[in-house]
Write a protein that binds this DNA or RNA. Sequence first.
DNA 1: GCTGCTTTGTGAACCGACGCACAAGCTTCT
DNA 2: AGAAGCTTGTGCGTCGGTTCACAAAGCAGC
Lengths: 222, 222
Amino acid sequence: MADDGSQVPAASVARLPLYLRCLEELRADGVSTVSSSRLAELAGVNAAKLRKDLSHLGSYGTRGVGYEVPNLMHQIQHQLGLDQQSPVIVVGLGNLGQALAKHGGFGERGFPIVALFDVQPDVVGITVGDLTVSHFDDVDAVVASHGARTAIIAAPADAAQSVTDRVTSAGITSVLNFAPTVVQVGVGVALRQVDLALELQILNYYQPRSESERDTKLRLSV
Amino acid sequence: MADDGSQVPAASVARLPLYLRCLEELRADGVSTVSSSRLAELAGVNAAKLRKDLSHLGSYGTRGVGYEVPNLMHQIQHQLGLDQQSPVIVVGLGNLGQALAKHGGFGERGFPIVALFDVQPDVVGITVGDLTVSHFDDVDAVVASHGARTAIIAAPADAAQSVTDRVTSAGITSVLNFAPTVVQVGVGVALRQVDLALELQILNYYQPRSESERDTKLRLSV
DNA sequence: GCTGCTTTGTGAACCGACGCACAAGCTTCT
DNA sequence: AGAAGCTTGTGCGTCGGTTCACAAAGCAGC
């Protein structure tokens, strides 16, 4: 029902790519139809929640049968705007940045990496994957020429904010920040933060502690 | 007030490491006392929410003054169980796994990487950072000898579940999964999933779309 | 065509999280 | 000592998300 006017709740949006990935697996296995309960099991979520999530993008299931895998994939892809490729730039080619640049998973899923940037003289000019690292000073022209809208920030923490400001003024409207610091973005720019060390610290809370701890805090799923 | 019996809500736990990181910055700048409003600004959250989060671990602020930076850091560290180091193993030394293994941020924050595992003959035996990659078959003995409780999974998706099962049976109780697939863990094992391509897909939803879209969905912070 | 089985889509209750707003409490100045 | 000014800690209303449970709807077999 909700196709045009209303928004999809943020919590649902965050799960749609997960469903899409599960659907890809099913399609690879030659499955043509899937029920909400089966798909929910694969995604590790509640079946009712999954159905409600999918209902936000229309009624594409068949009662008594389930969802047609290729059709549902197409609907989710459309809703997420994955119909066309979205070029991505990477800023900061340290260990993590280089790994991300060489990581094939992005290109496979419609996010080809088209340019790499750094400021270190010993990094600018080297080849990572099949791209040569450009100097960050050239970011405006390169972003414009490729029509890139998404930036992956893998720069040091103390440079992350200025890098973010620079790429957004160059036309970037989506920022995925791996630097271990909070960055601010203006309106009209989407932002997600991924902090690897933070994840370990969160996990650590759920470790059983020696000193007279309750053992009732041993669950966590994300 | 809530120190022993009651739990800290999961949403609060997930933010405590963030506060801790901001406090580290403040301490590095020589700041000895901080108000909730200032700390909230640094962390990018609401001040009342921050105070409520901190209240879950006791009353460590002084009204009219604020929080003493070193003391608050210590309390958060204690609550998260960061008093002692927690050794970590990395399974899967592809691009991402190698970058994570060389990433200094883990060791700095109390999570020294003590062992690396893979199954590929051309990877086992190589040196990454200052560790040599062991064969995954030896995981039980190595985990036991180091007392490691946390595993970072950077293996291919189709191996992630079996790797997870193996490391948990070897004694691992915290799993940080980077493989692009949902893994299941038994009770008593904490799990967090990080999927890089997923993040880009989520971001993509908030991109302005061409076809007669509302421009009211342009915000997102995490 | 009708009955029974299966599964979707959703109303509604429930639950947790968020943020406002204010009382309690500490500090400083007079 | 008393008053004024901050800042914490928290009660409470609100909002969004999750889950249950069921009606609506399609399919299969008789």
